[in-house]
Every structure is written in structure tokens, then in C-alpha cells.
């Protein structure tokens, strides 16, 4: 502690510890936030249902989505990533999860909305199992905090049946 450089070294090294404690505490307090998410989604329209050249079923559709994710945001939330998946069962796979649409919510002001969206990614099956298939729409969300671990959760939105015939 006999020169400025020594003291600066000590100061900077020690200052990391309270910083780490603050960030850990911020992440710890996030665990006490119990969010109540309200979301609905229905199939707005099935725009195209066809069989690809290689034999796999492909569906293009549009979704009517409304959600209120405001309760997910705390002071430690950087952004929230939401995506809607179609989930169904086939003889080959006990669970098929296909992402249809995703969105990044940057802040609380944009966390409540209702809109009709086309699918960003087509629903393509590993084979030809989609005719008349009962499909569940599930909303997943990943909360990305400013410090700490990412929180993941999901909720079921609705189910629908695909038509029996290609269009």
C-alpha cells in the first residue's frame, strides 16, 4: 500500500466483489417474481396445405395472436423472446415441436399486443402425417435477464385439426 499503483490495484480488484454480489442479488430477487401471462392464439386461416416433392407435408397458415407479457418484465429483464410452436404426435416421434412464429419483446411498453401474423416458418412434417392431425399451439417464452440465468416457460394456447385434404 505504499504507492498509488498498489492502491489502485487493490481498489479495482476489490471493487469486483461488491459488483458481483449486487448482480447476484439482482438475479436472486428475480426468482420471487411470479408472472401471470395471458395469451391466446387461434388459427386465422390455413393458406396452403400441400405435399412437398419429397413427400413431406407442408402447411402455411396465419395466426391470430394476442398476448400480455408485461408481468414478465422486472428491473433485471433485458428482453423476452417468445415463440409459438405447433406440437403433435406421430408414430415416429412422440413429440414434434415446430416453431411457427417468433418475436423479441424489447421492453415492457411493447409487451401487450394483438395481431394477425403469417407463419414465419412453414409447418413441415417429417413425412406425411399431417392430414386430419390434431395440433396443439404452445407459446414458449425465454426471459433474458441483465444478470443471472435465463428463465424459460411455456403455456398451451389452443388445439386445432388440420383438414383431411390438401389444398
Amino acid at each position: 500500500m505504499h504507492s498509488v499503483a498498489y492502491r489502485l490495484n487493490t481498489l479495482v480488484s476489490f471493487s469486483v466483489l461488491p459488483l458481483a454480489l449486487m448482480l447476484a442479488a439482482a438475479s436472486f430477487l428475480d426468482g420471487f417474481n411470479s408472472p401471470t401471462v395471458q395469451a391466446h392464439a387461434q388459427i386465422h386461416k390455413i393458406r396452403r396445405f400441400r405435399k412437398q416433392v419429397n413427400g413431406a407435408d407442408e402447411v402455411n397458415l396465419s395466426l391470430n395472436i394476442s398476448m400480455d407479457m408485461e408481468s414478465l418484465f422486472t428491473w433485471n429483464t433485458k428482453q423476452v423472446f417468445v415463440f409459438v410452436t405447433a406440437e403433435y404426435q406421430t408414430p415416429k416421434n412422440s413429440l414434434n415441436q415446430i416453431s411457427l412464429w417468433d418475436h423479441i419483446i424489447p421492453d415492457k411498453e411493447h409487451a401487450k399486443f394483438q395481431r394477425v401474423v403469417p407463419n414465419k416458418y412453414p409447418l413441415i412434417d417429417q413425412g406425411s402425417n399431417l392430414r386430419g392431425k390434431n395440433i396443439e399451439l404452445v407459446l414458449h417464452w425465454h426471459i433474458m435477464p441483465k444478470s443471472g440465468k435465463m428463465i424459460q416457460d411455456k403455456m398451451s394456447l389452443s388445439t386445432f385439426n388440420l383438414p383431411e385434404a390438401y389444398s
Binding site: 449486487m22 439482482a26 428491473w75 433485471n76
Partner: peptide, 23 residues
């Protein structure tokens, strides 16, 4: 020095949490 830094950290956390601003 340690006492000052810890005091500032506690103050910063309290104010940040109260205001709701990480920055």
C-alpha cells in the same frame, strides 16, 4: 476502502431496486 465500496454497493442496489433501473 472496503467499507466505502460495500456501502456504495448497498446504496446503489437499494436505489436501483427502488427506482427499478439496473443502469
Amino acid at each position: 476502502m472496503e467499507i466505502m465500496l460495500i456501502a456504495f454497493a448497498a446504496m446503489a442496489f437499494a436505489v436501483g431496486y427502488a427506482v427499478g433501473s439496473f443502469q
